[in-house]
Design a protein around this nucleic acid. Structure first.
Lengths: 355, 355
DNA sequence: CTGAAAGCGCTAACAG
DNA sequence: CTGTTAGCGCTTTCAG
């Protein structure tokens, strides 16, 4: 209980040398099947577990097989990514060192800790560091950023094709016959430029005008945009930068007495937990989170092991999740506040149409 | 760049021995002010950072000053706790090792990793391990569980006074004149028993009947309970087990054409991000998360350092956050579905009344 | 105060 | 195949 078994103990029990046990434990070549089995058995019997500290220290001059991951604990998106990261890293024989980003613990601090532990590579979720800083880090070790573009050739990226995501939304709406679609954009946020570009292109392809309005990342921003639209005249459909913005818009629009999707169709982005609420039931664009995680780990490992990977980016296709906030536009023009109100924003939640 | 400075390098630069540098770096007694300053300066000049792996290894027979923390990455509640944990641990000279709980990475696995790193104590967020398992761990090292009761004398606990939380809700509602209040309970969930007990006691104190209905932890459960209430006759107010349940209830009730809070007052529990949405704007009971974190760390450190702490539990007072889903009951009896509907569930969000 | 010396548990050559 | 031998970077006695 007090002291845990070491290599030495296993060696003694199996009647071999420490070195051999080490070889067997880490699956290195140089041990016969028979002894290997004996050693493994002995290890199991006394409940031997390698000491990661010692292992890490001893591996200073070789490979630590440690991947450092920063994440923002408050993002459900990151939680899902973490799941995928563990799933991909462990079978490949890599360990994960976690470093949380919190209001009082900035990215620099989080990364520093990871570096102290001699991680071999950095997998950054929710990075807001400037490209220059990332490039500087990348001179030291492989760096990969998820879900954000980085203008630095040395930094790897795994992200969703946000332009394609918005295109899906546009296709969905135009298939209903919508022509007057507004995009509430995300300003300088990660992915916002791509979404704007996708919107412009998709609308142009259909010969429709690409109306855009500054939206934002929060419910508040969505509400503000909604008030502007109500004043200026509603389109028949809105594609928001993300789900939170869409929810803010929904809220304001419903309170003004309009019906969704009868009077206005709304599409969000992210497939936030929020949007899945029966309450909200938002049609939205989802990212393939497990795939993002898998690719990120794979790319980093390939880099570490010298395997070829083409380019420095992996771009994953998004998918549309049709829920209750989209439908065909009304025949007439959109009504203004004051018309007969109805409670509820959408039909009861059914299963999502995809994933 | 390739190799980082070690104690040796600092020692050379400061013209002293390695041992002395070690003493100075970790603030141990035995170095004069002058040399201490010189050493620190030298360390700063070459950017020395102690190697945590080596430090941890060398401290095997003494104190590692490492606190192991498990957490569920998908809980915003845990994210807030983590923030507080870092804040409390670092000034006390303790490091934090994180181990995420994910669907594929159970609590046993997470704890095992922490043990491998020779954490001195375990701080468990979102633990679902049976009391017996926790007690077993507690024989090995100090274990503290947050936000859940544990029937094991050896396991420490820091939690919210959930009975008091429900009492706050009852007081708030009765101060409006509500008499017919139903509690949607949380079954076997952590905290559910306390909330039930608090409800019963608070209602009894006021000579009111303590109506309860099986609720649950999810929006779905809240919706089901709402349908039951609609069929059986609505009370004037409902206190849900948590915010998600409350939101499910709200959703169903609003769709049935009722108004909140005019026809029905609703109180949630947790101050979930969800409840803060203008959309939802739920009156709820909040936990003092920073305080929970602070106490947890303090208690564990006290235990490790032999400082006296009374009892094995810290119980923190909750607070009521009044938003838009509570008001005085209508003079007449509650209407049924079919009466004139109104859009929107509540007045626009104002600042919360507390924290 | 300071320096020498013995580990912490494991890895990684290198002879046998 | 197997045992020996150095470390990895830091902590911690224990004499000087």
């Amino acid at each position: 209980m007090g002291t845990r078994p070491t290599l030495e103990d296993v060696a003694a029990r199996a009647g071999v040398s420490r070195a051999l046990v080490s070889i067997v434990i880490r699956g290195a070549p140089g041990a016969s099947q028979a002894t290997s089995a004996r050693v493994l058995q002995a290890a199991a019997e006394i409940g031997y577990r390698p000491d990661p500290r010692a292992r890490l220290l001893a591996r200073t001059r070789s490979r630590t097989r440690l991947l450092g991951v920063t994440f923002g604990a408050e993002h459900p998106f990151h939680a899902d990514l973490l799941e995928g990261i563990y799933l991909a890293a462990e079978p490949a024989g890599y360990d994960i060192a976690l470093s949380a980003l919190t209001p009082s613990r900035g990215e620099d601090r989080a990364v520093e800790t990871l570096l102290d532990y001699r991680c071999e590579a950095l997998l950054l979720l929710g990075s807001e560091a400037p490209a220059a800083r990332l490039a500087e880090l990348a001179r030291q070790l492989p760096v990969l950023v998820v879900a954000r573009r980085v203008r630095a050739a040395s930094v790897q990226v795994v992200r969703t094709a946000d332009d394609a995501g918005i295109r899906l939304a546009v296709e969905h709406l135009t298939s209903f016959g919508h022509k007057d679609i507004v995009h509430l954009d995300g300003g300088h946020a990660a992915g916002a430029a791509d979404r704007r570009r996708g919107f412009r292109a998709a609308m142009r392809d259909r010969g429709l005008p690409a109306r855009m309005l500054p939206g934002g990342l929060t419910e508040q921003a969505g509400g503000a945009a909604a008030r502007q639209l109500l004043a200026a005249g509603l389109p028949s459909a809105v594609i928001a930068f993300n789900d939170r913005c869409a929810v803010g818009l929904l809220d304001t629009v419903l309170r003004a007495g309009l019906r969704v999707p009868a009077d206005l169709s709304v599409v969000g982005y992210d497939d936030d937990r929020l949007s899945r609420l029966a309450h909200v039931n938002l049609t939205t664009v989802g990212q393939d989170v497990p795939e993002l995680a898998r690719l990120a780990v794979r790319r980093l490992i390939a880099r570490l092991e010298g395997t070829a990977v083409r380019g420095r980016e992996d771009v994953v296709a998004p998918h549309l999740i049709v829920r209750g906030t989209t439908a065909a536009p009304r025949a007439g023009s959109a009504p203004r506040a004051g018309s007969a109100p109805r409670a509820g924003s959408a039909p009861a939640a059914g299963p999502a149409s995809s994933v």
